[in-house]
Each structure stands twice: as structure tokens, then as C-alpha cells.
């Protein structure tokens, strides 16, 4: 169920990435897409009620978040540069 929610988020993100113009919208769409993927990973970690969740997907999500944040920061910097072309 949780995993399906993640896939739904992923699809929503891709859809709005393709449909919308504007850097900010696209960037948010990409981040929604990423959040969807991370949710799928979290759902993957579930190993039944009485077992501890699988730690590997959690580590992957952490790494993924770091990568996504850096990429977002770079995109925002480039976007800012575009806003001030005379600089």
C-alpha cells in the first residue's frame, strides 16, 4: 500500500515535470518524483510486523536525499544565474 503510494507520487512527479514550464515547478516536480522513489524504498524495508525493518533501503534513502538536495541546490544556483544575466 505504502509502496503503491510511492509509485503514485513518482508518476505524479513525472507528469508534472513534463507538463509544467518554469524552473521552480519542474524542480519541485523532480523532488516529488524523488520522494516517491524513496517511499518505495521505505516500503521495501518492511519485513513483517515482528521483524526489524531491513536497514539497507534506509541507508539508500539517506544517500539519495543527500544527492537530491545537492542537485536541487545546483539547479537553483543556475536558475538564479539566469535571472541576473547582466552579472
Amino acid at each position: 500500500m505504502y509502496g503503491l503510494g510511492g509509485i503514485l507520487l513518482f508518476l505524479l512527479g513525472v507528469w508534472s515535470f513534463l507538463v509544467h514550464d518554469g524552473l521552480l515547478r519542474k524542480l519541485i516536480a523532480i523532488n516529488v518524483t524523488g520522494a516517491g522513489v524513496f517511499h518505495v524504498f521505505i516500503a521495501v524495508a518492511y519485513r513483517g510486523l515482528d521483524a526489524a525493518p531491513d536497514p539497507v533501503p534506509h541507508a539508500l534513502v539517506l544517500t539519495g536525499i543527500v544527492v537530491a538536495v545537492s542537485a536541487t541546490a545546483l539547479a537553483l544556483t543556475l536558475g538564479q544565474r539566469l535571472e541576473r544575466p547582466d552579472d
Binding site: 513518482f10 513525472v14 523532480i30 542537485a71 545546483l74
Partner: peptide, 9 residues
């Protein structure tokens, strides 16, 4: 960059 992000996601 954005296209690349979509690809890797």
C-alpha cells in the same frame, strides 16, 4: 541537469 535528474530517478 533536470533531464539527468529525471533519468536517474
Amino acid at each position: 541537469l533536470l533531464v539527468g535528474l529525471l533519468g536517474s530517478m
